[in-house]
Design a protein around this nucleic acid. Structure first.
Lengths: 144, 144
DNA sequence: CAGGCTCATTAGTTAGGCTAACGACTGTGA
DNA sequence: TCACAGTCGTTAGCCTAACTAATGAGCCTG
């Protein structure tokens, strides 16, 4: 299969549409439990990083500090996040996912992937290969 | 190029990560003007369809009718959408983007695509072709 | 060691989503 | 033919999630 010429200006809106719509779809596949997308995202970032201050987590999530205060408060209520004082700086706080938080995360992760995985299973081997290569390229774009 | 075997369970998280991250990235490239993402999306759907009733637009946007009432009200305030009575059914209303609405849309569209288009331009012809085919498959998944 | 800075939080606003309920209108069946 | 069930859009009221501005606690430097 020869590569067609694909002008970036034409590909961009197509790709953007595909991504935003599929993203909506994936988000709609909400598993059991009542964590919101925002809370889930923050918890995920927190686990990934290990431990962060509210400010750092806010930066990672691209949210203002007061917003993160609220999100963390809700996660803490449910015992999914733990707050410990900073060892040397009395102003700061250290946030970390609790064991319960990590367990909830695993559950969500599985359920979210299930929907997509079942759809992917219906594709041909060729289509999946195209998506695999595309995923690499998209990751690269997102990092740029 | 032969197709590798790609188990769906393995591809799903990769693809999901790529999509959610790139989606955040695209959304952050917000252009000038004060239309929100929601309003922009509704306006886009409206222009695409030509003219719709509130109910139809709500269905397209996957939103409940009362929510669409609010969104349309804001778009109407700015003169981007026009409301006309249905010719035969007194209950219904016909919504359409005004010329001003279409102009605003063009502006946003350009600015949003710019970031992505410039990144795409840096890829090889092969990579862009992969993404083009992937975009089709992703659209298909989103509709499923 | 006084003053300015940083960090987290609180207070208050706005957007965007939902359900429940309602009034206007349509269309059908007795 | 007309009573009534259903549809359409809207209003009301609630919640989440984001923002900015302001506040108070703690740090650090001149």
């Amino acid at each position: 299969m020869t590569a067609n010429r694909v002008p970036p200006a034409q590909l961009a809106p197509q790709l953007r549409d595909a991504i935003t719509r599929l993203n909506r779809r994936v988000r709609q596949a909400r598993p059991v439990g009542d964590l919101t997308v925002t809370q889930l995202s923050a918890l995920t970032s927190l686990r990934l990083a290990g431990a962060l201050t509210p400010r750092e987590l806010a930066d990672v999530e691209r949210v203002q500090p007061p917003t993160m205060t609220k999100i963390v408060a809700k996660l803490e209520e449910r015992g999914l996040v733990q707050r410990t004082p900073h060892p040397t700086d009395g102003r700061q706080v250290i946030l970390a996912a609790t064991e319960g938080g990590r367990a909830v995360l695993d559950q969500f992760e599985r359920a979210r992937n299930e929907w997509l995985a079942s759809r992917l299973a219906a594709l041909t081997e060729d289509e999946r290969d195209t998506l695999r290569r595309a995923a690499d390229i998209l990751q690269q774009l997102a990092r740029a």
